[in-house]
Simulated assay, not measured.
Amino acid sequence: MNLRDLHTQHGATLAPDGIPLQYNDLATEYEQAHHAAVLLDRSHEGRIHLTNISRFELLNRMSTNKLVDMTAGEGRATLFTNDHARIIDRIEVYNLADTLLAITEPGQGPSITNFIQKHIFYGDQVQLADVTTETAHFALHGPQAVAIAKLINPDIHEDTTLAAYQATLGSTPVTLLRRKAVVGTHWAVICAKTDAEQVYVDLLSLGAPLGLIPAGSLTFNTLRIEAGRPARPELNTDYIPMEVGLYDEISFTKGCYTGQEIIARMDSRERIARVMVQLELDNLVQAPADLFLDGRLIGKITSSVQAPNHHVYALGVVKTAVAIPGKLLTAGEATATIVDYAGTQPTFLKPEQNTSA
């Protein structure tokens, strides 16, 4: 039985790419994500291997974060930006000893591979391989996700930094990644494509006593909006990384990269025109939608969703001066309340959040 048939057998409604959108009950998926754990197939997120001695330097000079001093097993998120410091894309990079593993946003594996390939210069000693179709990628989310991860590898450390571990699930070799959380903790399990069905079954069996159930992309989208995590609606050339809560994915001590001067200037002047905020609405407004304050256009909703708990959550990018918790805005016929900043903000906006290099 292939993975698509296995998902269907468990009650999944599938997207055209075979990734589950939902299983039988979105409310149950959402509840378990908040109180136990859910298992998602995230195989549409790209996976790229970089090998040979120039692998660190290549990504370091192309992106916002410092990568040349990564230790074995360490992970860091970083962004590609254009000449105007606008976001091209975001990846997470993990040091697997002799290989760097880059995880892309969904569907971006081929385009990011081509983008990196174009920046390999004469003299660079690096090989690049898009291994998305050769591997599978499952994700554990929720407060019990770390307990399930510890059943796979008892030696993992309990903290929030990105990290990679090698392990076996049953007799199958897997790579275990600690990633940015959207609820509880977030662990990825990467395996060979030929082992995908067995790994999926083994994960569900291993986690069942802890409340693990399968969930789909619709639940993930709800969780990431509720948590203030940017995705494709925010990770694009409309925005600069500091505007969408990704200050912790920028190093201000490394060498040059495309867009660096603009980002460094914004930080040194402690001036940012727009900022991403978490919103709650009194009824659903489909994104994108303009946001107004006293009739004045001050930003827009970029992502929105009505959760199974009947709350309407949204992300919006607004003028910094109005990004005040409790501030009431309007979007169409809805009232939108600013809950807080989303993500990690510059030190001059929210100093207690800053953990960047």
Score class of each variant (00 low, 15 high):
6 L>V: 10
8 T>N: 04
8 T>H: 02
12 A>M: 04
19 I>A: 11
35 H>M: 05
40 L>T: 03
41 D>K: 09
47 R>Q: 14
50 L>E: 01
51 T>Q: 12
58 L>D: 00
64 T>W: 08
64 T>M: 06
65 N>T: 04
70 M>K: 06
72 A>D: 15
82 N>S: 11
82 N>V: 08
87 I>R: 03
87 I>F: 07
124 D>S: 13
128 L>F: 06
128 L>C: 03
131 V>D: 04
136 A>Q: 00
141 H>A: 04
144 Q>Y: 06
146 V>G: 07
155 D>L: 13
159 D>T: 12
171 S>N: 14
182 V>H: 02
183 V>C: 09
183 V>G: 00
193 K>L: 10
196 A>L: 02
197 E>S: 14
197 E>N: 15
201 V>F: 04
205 S>N: 15
207 G>C: 08
226 E>S: 11
227 A>V: 07
232 R>W: 10
236 N>S: 02
244 V>P: 00
245 G>K: 06
248 D>N: 15
258 T>K: 15
260 Q>L: 09
263 I>P: 04
268 S>F: 10
269 R>F: 07
270 E>I: 06
276 M>S: 14
282 D>M: 14
288 P>C: 08
290 D>E: 14
292 F>V: 05
295 G>Q: 06
299 G>N: 01
309 N>H: 12
311 H>C: 01
314 A>H: 03
316 G>P: 09
333 E>F: 10
334 A>C: 04
335 T>M: 03
336 A>S: 05
337 T>I: 07
343 G>S: 08
345 Q>T: 14
348 F>Q: 07
350 K>I: 12
354 N>E: 12
357 A>C: 06
